[in-house]
């Protein structure tokens, strides 16, 4: 089976998942007491004729399955509704904040994968050595620390006392940098939140890489690779790591949800103007359309994340493509 066909199949599997998520949120909202018309007319009540007209305008007089069908179609075309609190389309609010979150997530993911895999390989090369023990203690410690506490400690030490890094937000508004200076400014603001999230995720990746590399390094094909006369580096990277990363890729894919949860916490602690912060604020102002939109958007994000994981896995492991 070609890779293209494999991807098509995966997309075909992902679509019903997304529709399922949309149906779920629709049902949840329908189960809640009241309807949007009550919300618009408020406590005062209104003429039944007006109410009926509003209901018809919003399609609420239609049978439930028609409403559901319309809602699913609406969402699939990218219309996530309208936020009354911000008086703006939900999708615009989300897309406005998305880059800030992606910047944070991608940076910390790349960093924690690079460092975590590197430390894991170092550990696995000599299990039980003092280097391995030191790395193990380090990763267990970072794994056990909650991200909000770690974030606040970073703020307190590196930010508040030492004044090394800014502790809030993404840019220095007062300076109003542009161009290259703006890039440096953002990078400077990213240091603490990215550090907090990297430390959190790195531990899991290190432990997984260590375990799977120890197993792979005992495999016959690694002995064969050494017997070919390859350098230890080539044996590790070309022969062992490609196999050793398979379980790591799977788990990172499965952990995608908690990555998003971690992002919400971190963005809140560091006042980072991203989706996590947007969600947090939406809860505070009871902005239901925005929350619903966020829910569906995050579902889509997780599904896309899993799709990427599947594709990566298929790229790494030819056996997957055939089964």
């Amino acid at each position: 089976m070609s890779l293209g066909l494999f991807l098509l199949k995966r997309i075909a599997y992902a679509t019903p998942l997304l529709v399922g998520a949309i149906v779920l949120i629709f049902v949840l909202v329908r189960l809640a007491p009241g309807n949007p018309v009550d919300y618009i007319i408020g406590e005062m009540g209104a003429d039944p004729v007006v109410v009926a007209r509003l209901m018809a305008d919003m399609g609420l007089d239609q049978p439930v399955y028609v409403q559901l069908y319309r809602y699913v179609l609406q969402v699939l075309t990218g219309d996530l509704g309208h936020s009354f609190v911000s008086n703006a389309p939900v999708i615009d609010l989300i897309l406005d904040r998305l880059p800030a979150t992606l910047l944070l997530m991608v940076s910390q993911l790349v960093l924690s994968i690079l460092i975590g895999v590197w430390l894991g390989v170092l550990s696995a090369r000599k299990p039980g050595s003092s280097l391995d023990n030191a790395i193990t203690i380090f990763s267990l410690a970072t794994f056990a620390i909650p991200v909000f506490w770690l974030g606040q400690m970073l703020i307190l030490t590196a930010g508040y006392y030492l004044h090394w890094f800014p502790i809030q937000g993404m840019v220095n508004f007062r300076a109003g940098y542009t161009g290259w200076e703006h890039v440096v400014d953002v990078a400077y603001h990213m240091v603490l939140p990215v550090t907090a999230m990297t430390l959190l995720n790195l531990a899991l990746i290190q432990r997984l890489t260590r375990a799977s590399m120890i197993e792979v390094l005992g495999q016959d094909y690694v002995k064969v690779a050494r017997a070919k006369g390859l350098t230890e580096g080539a044996v590790l990277v070309r022969h062992a790591l490609r196999n050793g990363l398979l379980p790591v890729v799977t788990v990172i894919g499965l952990e995608f949800r908690s990555l998003i949860a971690g992002a919400v916490l971190t963005e809140t602690v560091f006042a980072w103007p991203g989706l996590g912060r947007l969600t947090f604020d939406a809860i505070g102002t009871r902005d239901y359309p925005l929350l619903m939109g966020m829910f569906i958007f995050m579902c889509a994000l997780v599904i896309i994340g899993n799709l990427i994981t599947d594709l990566l896995y298929a790229l790494l492991d030819p056996r997957i493509r055939y089964s």
């Binding site: 495999q219 016959d220 094909y221 002995k223 064969v224 490609r242 196999n243 790494l316 030819p318």
Partner: peptide, 8 residues
């Protein structure tokens, strides 16, 4: 069965 690298 195990001497060849499964992903190459």
């Amino acid at each position: 069965m195990t001497s060849l690298n499964p992903v190459i």
